[in-house]
């Protein structure tokens, strides 16, 4: 640490959030949001996951090097590093699993339009397409083939009833405000608008909350 670092630390005009912390905050926020939201959310852009994966890889290599010399002094540091790595990996794993669970539940829905497909990452898209193809083939060989041809579709929307199951976008969610702003929510008896302040927790429908969360003015909890 030299004098510049010290000056930067006490300078109030520089936001003092280091890169690692803001990445961890972003990952945590994504994880909590994915666990709480009724539908699949956008895959993060801006290389967040590449960055995180690279760091995890580098950390694993470091552990491999450190385990080589079993000096009791570095031993404790090794335990700390491994504990933290496991915590980080849990976050990543739980986030990806929450996403796969949603994709599994409404595969056809997320494959049905370009806009929805764009929410999936490349690997998720490959997984969803292959999974759906396998499933369809299996259905075909086991029972669908004995149906009349016009009834063999799995994505029929005839008669105003869609066969494609989609998530309930009006489900209630909890959000925490990150900035002061007005919030409008649709309710059964009345639609109301209220001023919400930073840190306030609100319950409202996901359909009303979505735009606020996407603006970054609130987060799911």
């Amino acid at each position: 640490m030299d004098i510049d670092d010290i000056l930067r630390e006490v300078d109030p005009t520089v936001s003092g959030v280091p890169n690692e912390t803001s990445d961890l905050q972003s990952l945590t926020r994504l994880w909590v949001a994915e666990r709480s939201a009724p539908e699949l959310l956008e895959w993060p852009s801006g290389g967040l996951f590449e960055r995180i994966n690279d760091r995890i890889k580098a950390q694993i290599e470091k552990i491999e090097i450190l385990t080589g010399d079993m000096d009791p002094k570095t031993n404790f540091a090794l335990i700390v590093i491994q504990t933290e790595l496991e915590r980080y990996k849990f976050l990543v794993r739980s986030y990806l699993r929450a996403r796969i669970a949603k994709i599994d539940k409404h595969t056809l829905h997320y494959l049905s339009s370009e806009e929805l497909r764009n929410r999936l990452s490349e690997t998720e898209l490959a997984y969803a397409t292959r999974h759906q193809a396998l499933l369809h083939n299996h259905y075909l060989s086991s029972f669908l083939s004995s149906f009349p041809t016009q009834l063999q579709n799995l994505n029929d929307t005839a008669g105003n009833v869609s066969m494609i199951d989609s998530p309930d976008l009006d489900a209630a969610v909890f959000i925490r405000m990150l900035r002061d702003r007005q919030v409008t929510g649709q309710g059964t008896d009345a639609d109301i608008t209220l001023n919400a302040s930073n840190g306030e927790i609100l319950i409202l429908r996901w359909s009303s909350a979505k735009s606020i969360v996407e603006d970054g003015d609130a987060e799911l909890v």
Binding site: I192, L194, I201, L202, L204
Partner: peptide, 21 residues
Amino acid sequence: SGVDGVMSLLGVGAMELSESR
């Protein structure tokens, strides 16, 4: 008495939220 669009729970804690979610 009726459900409005937004319900505010200012000051609630994480565990309290989780247990009654």
